[in-house]
């Protein structure tokens, strides 16, 4: 921290295998003290580089637990989770932090931007923890904000941005360290339909540019943007199907938005 470490190119990894995510007999048990709750039951799952995947399930299905494990916020109780070739099962909390920093770009339902901190500084944050120098950080953050369509709002505070804009800042932040995995937890849960469509299109765009995107959601509309839908129920993987993304153009998105408002 005090010594300036030489910043490394964060996208470089030794493991360049096809499987980005590999869960092997992964079990997650929550020990609440008196009773043990089975969160996930023997999950075997492989996600390849460049896939666009939706993980679906009702609340209590175990999809949040899976999200925590995939996001390296939590470790599996049994079995293995290989992320980009790294077995996370035996990593210390600080090592998990480093893995999160380099390998995962998070997008949360409630945006989770740091308040009273400018959009630019928020995007810079993962790079700060990766010890990227100030100048490079700022330049990259500006590029990313431009890319998500917020090129004029560097200095805005989160509370000066709309929900959709905040989520764009969060996506820019998720891309900061060029992580191999973009992990989005209900990214449209707090957004109106129009913003939801914009955000999902942004993910589609990233996917087309080669990013691996995993979206955890309970909304079919959202899952419909992805190419593969994995369903969970009661802590078990119940189905894993290919999906042909339906809505891809802005025109169609507008149609969907209208349908959505009719349905209300």
């Amino acid at each position: 921290m005090w010594k300036k470490k030489k910043s490394q190119p964060v996208h470089e990894t030794e493991y360049m295998g096809e499987d980005l995510i590999k869960l092997v007999d992964m079990v997650k048990v929550y020990d609440t003290g008196t009773i043990k709750v089975l969160g996930l039951h023997r999950v075997n799952l492989t996600i390849k580089r460049g896939e666009f995947v939706a993980i679906m399930g009702q609340s209590g299905s175990g999809k949040s637990t899976l999200m925590n494990v995939l996001g390296c916020l939590d470790r599996p109780t049994m079995g293995h989770y290989y992320l980009d070739g790294i077995d996370t099962a035996n990593l210390e909390p600080d090592e998990l932090s480093t893995v999160r920093n380099r390998k995962i770009g998070f997008v949360f339902q409630s945006f989770n931007l740091i308040s009273r901190t400018s959009a630019l500084k928020n995007v810079e944050l993962p790079m700060t923890y990766a010890h990227v120098n100030q100048k490079a950080r700022e330049q990259r953050a500006k590029e990313l904000l431009e890319r998500v369509g917020l090129g004029t709002r560097y200095e805005h505070m989160p509370n000066e941005l709309s929900g959709g804009q905040r989520q764009r800042v969060a996506i820019a932040r998720a891309l900061a360290n060029q992580p191999p995995l973009i992990l989005a937890d209900e990214p449209t849960g707090n957004l109106d339909t129009a913003s939801s469509v914009e955000i999902m299109e942004l993910f589609s765009q990233l996917h087309k540019e080669g990013a691996t995107v995993v979206v955890v959601t309970h909304e079919e509309d959202i899952a419909a943007f992805t190419e593969r839908i994995i369903r969970f129920r009661d802590g078990k993987l119940v189905s894993d199907t290919k999906n042909k993304p339906q809505i891809q153009t802005e025109e169609e998105a507008v149609t969907m938005q209208k349908e959505g408002s009719h349905a209300d």
Partner: peptide, 14 residues
């Protein structure tokens, strides 16, 4: 905020 920072890669020391 601490949770966000940790999720984004802050270590204990940070």
């Amino acid at each position: 905020e601490i949770g966000i920072r940790k999720a984004l890669g802050a270590r204990t020391k940070d």
